[in-house]
């Protein structure tokens, strides 16, 4: 019972709390309501979600529905990726007594949902591995990536030396960026490089903003900070709806970098629009921006964090 209560709290954070949803989340009342609706409509909750909702929200809801199922087999299907997805969908249909002939789209739709759910979980593991990979000067790949970032952002100004005051021009704190990646590890650097490589004009524009005499900020440091924001959004699960809305199959690290580009570019716009007194307002404005994004992801079912091209 306590376990169920904890889960309820967790799912609660993602939606508006109303008295009705509170009642609904009490397990017993929920099953009674579900049973009545099932009697009336002749469909189970999974079917109703798939019929009613759009792709992204649909997957989020299906995941929650399966996680809270009273059948242990169904809960297990979302917890651990089944070896054979087709067999898993068939198992769900058998347990829920859904006839394939009368519900032709059910199978493919549910399969897509399961693929998205496990794709997201796997992406999270990959992102976590990149985040915990510390920046290492002895690692040739890391060093190459860092120098690549320089040449992407400052194509006309060669770096005089690997350890140089010049790093400050693109917003690192000291003369060697290695200590600035910290808790975001190589993920922070990969995001910076991805943005500069795939959106050179946007990157140049925001870099120019960061050098503004009044509203300037430290470009690289802010970017690493936004990497941390994107990571927080992944941890809380809020980014799920974005990925489910934009990727039909399994999201990849590339999709993640794209979401980062959106966040960083939008943050830059938000910052400039806020006309901050000075850089000491960073935490406050970051907080406001984070809240905006969280609300967008939580309440807008069609949320997509994609760069405008």
């Amino acid at each position: 019972m306590l376990q169920a209560g904890k889960k309820t709290l967790a799912t609660f954070k993602h939606g508006p709390v109303t008295f009705l949803s509170l009642l609904y989340n009490i397990a017993l009342i929920r099953s009674v309501i579900k049973w009545i609706i099932r009697m009336l409509t002749g469909t189970c909750q999974l079917q109703r979600i798939l019929q009613k909702c759009e792709s992204g929200t649909c997957t989020v809801k299906i995941e929650e529905c399966l996680r809270r199922s009273k059948f242990q087999q169904l809960r297990r299907i979302v917890e651990v990726e089944p070896e054979n997805l087709d067999a898993a969908v068939e198992q769900i249909m058998t347990i829920k007594q859904i006839v394939a002939d009368t519900n032709p789209r059910f199978f493919t739709m549910l399969r897509t949902c399961l693929e998205q759910i496990h794709g997201y979980n796997k992406l999270f593991v990959e992102i976590e591995a990149l985040r915990t990979e510390k920046y290492d000067c002895e690692n040739e790949e890391h060093e190459k990536l860092l120098l690549k970032l320089w040449s992407l952002l400052q194509p006309d100004e060669p770096l005089t030396c690997r350890v140089s005051k010049q790093w400050g021009n693109i917003g690192f704190q000291g003369d060697d960026p290695k200590t600035d990646f910290r808790g975001m590890g190589i993920l922070g650097l990969l995001n910076l490089v991805y943005f500069a490589e795939h959106y050179p004009e946007h990157a140049a524009k925001s870099l120019l903003h960061s050098m503004h005499p009044k509203y300037g900020y430290s470009y690289a440091i802010a970017s690493i900070n936004i990497t941390s924001m994107s990571y927080e959004l992944m941890c809380s699960g809020l980014l799920r709806s974005h990925f489910f809305n934009t990727v039909q199959g399994r999201p990849t690290t590339e999709h993640y970098h794209e979401a980062f580009c959106y966040l960083f570019y939008e943050f830059d716009k938000f910052w400039m629009k806020s006309e901050p007194e000075n850089v000491m307002e960073f935490s406050r404005i970051r907080g406001e921006f984070m809240k905006t994004i969280q609300d967008l992801l939580a309440y807008l079912p069609t949320a997509r964090l994609l760069m405008e091209t």
């Binding site: 910290r182 975001m184 935490s283």
Partner: peptide
């Protein structure tokens, strides 16, 4: 999961007898 501090962080820490308001200000030269 720490990142370099742009600006500052502030936290309130309760200890026996004291409420500590700790201001952590970024150390970057600028």
């Amino acid at each position: 999961q720490i990142t370099p501090t742009q600006g500052f962080n502030v936290k309130c820490v309760n200890t026996p007898g004291f409420k500590l308001n700790v201001w952590d200000i970024g150390g970057q030269r600028r």
